[in-house]
Design a protein around this nucleic acid. Structure first.
Lengths: 228, 228
DNA sequence: CCTTTTCGCATACCAACGGTATGTGAAGGT
DNA sequence: ACCTTCACATACCGTTGGTATGCGAAAAGG
């Protein structure tokens, strides 16, 4: 095996191992000793690949998780038709993807605390939030929603979805997911001038491959007023 | 000085010192050695007052911060008239109070990471989120907004406000605060059936004593479509 | 081919950290 | 006056993230 191959392989092993451990027990709950042991390397290798030590390793893991979530959001949005549908499909996909407890601890809990909010937000912006901002800008430019600064709205919606995903991850009621998507849909619909075809915010044919969210015994999704 | 007095005083000193340090450099960035040194006590005293060690100390600090924020929210809400106005005034007060960088690091960044999301949310619920849920329930019961499960909506709005506060704390544009309040107002208004007197989400006589947010050179607040 | 350099990684070590076991002296009851 | 309580101090420990240095095989040079 060539040296470059081996190097990349070691790096990926380190990222994969620490991702699994960080996701299950949190950043502070995992020591470097355990990471390097389960990776089959030593601390020397870790610091050779990640100059910043534990923090840099976490950053690599976070970026990987963020890009996976973003990929799902983009795929869902592209499968939808008009800009308004793309926004709603993207939001629904984001909430569903972020509901994965594995991604949560890394992306939403430890991320801001370990890297600081500024850097966390920069990564989030590059991966996901930028798409949300673009979608909103497009809707404003297209006259679908009234003119309004998109930056604050982007933050509000991004935060709403993050928190909702956190809540969903530990909720037991199967109705919580559709109820949340319905409520999010209602908030988005409220941005539009009165009465422009209120569709639900559900999964109409957008990529939802093996999320573990299926089979929760709910019908349509996105309809309102069911199950308090 | 009596023993009980001295005990309470030591405890308060520890909480105040660690609150200041946690706020400025984060939970992980402050060691117990520094806390006890600046408090004028030793580690023995710390562990005598806080059995859980550093975590328990942080919990005490978090609860203090949460209660202060909640007090401001309640004061603002009570100063408003009808339930709908109370909701909006409370939301505005929450965003403004949470925009304080001191409270942020403790309440929004380190809180979930140190205590875990479940415990953090329990504290948040007891202090602030419960009031939001009550306000929403009241509005549903009063027929002001259509029937809908309030729990998901509470989480969405709570998350939106948290993230917005985080964003506002590091934003430099003075228009960001009014723009955010305006956007939040628009989202809330969207929950109401069409056309019921769209007032802005500003400070109309609700308690905003010395927040440091005044004088940001903005007019009305809560109007839409200005700046950027 | 053989030499030399490179570099991916291992070994050994360290200061600092959170945490604990034990000691102590003054306040408060009797 | 005695004894008990208890709010703290002292001394110590295991583990942690981090670093300086050594090594051996793969690549580069002749």
């Amino acid at each position: 095996m060539s040296r470059a191959e081996q190097k990349e392989r070691t790096r990926q092993t380190l990222v994969a191992t620490s991702r699994r451990l960080f996701a299950s027990r949190g950043y502070a709950g995992v020591g470097l000793a355990e990471i390097v042991r389960e990776s089959g390397v030593t601390k020397g290798a870790l610091y050779h690949h990640f100059e910043g030590g534990k923090t840099a390793l976490f950053r690599a893991v976070l970026e990987e998780v963020q890009q996976e979530v973003a990929a799902r959001v983009v795929a869902a949005a592209e499968a939808a038709g008009d800009p308004w549908q793309r926004l709603k499909a993207g939001c629904a996909a984001f909430v569903e993807a972020s509901a994965d407890p594995e991604a949560q601890r890394i992306m939403l809990i430890d991320g801001p605390a370990v890297l600081g909010w500024a850097e966390w937000r920069a990564i989030d912006e590059a991966a996901s939030a930028s798409h949300l901002a673009e979608a909103l800008t497009e809707l404003v430019d297209g006259g679908v929603i009234p003119p309004r600064p998109v930056a604050p709205l982007t933050r509000l919606l991004s935060g709403a979805m993050n928190e909702a995903a956190l809540w969903l991850a530990q909720s037991t009621a199967p109705a919580d997911l559709p109820d949340t998507l319905s409520a999010l849909s209602a908030l988005l619909e409220g941005l539009r001038p009165e009465g422009l075809g209120q569709e639900g915010l559900g999964q109409e044919g957008l990529g939802q491959e093996g999320l573990g969210q299926e089979g929760l015994g709910q019908e349509g999704l996105g309809q309102e007023g069911l199950s308090s």
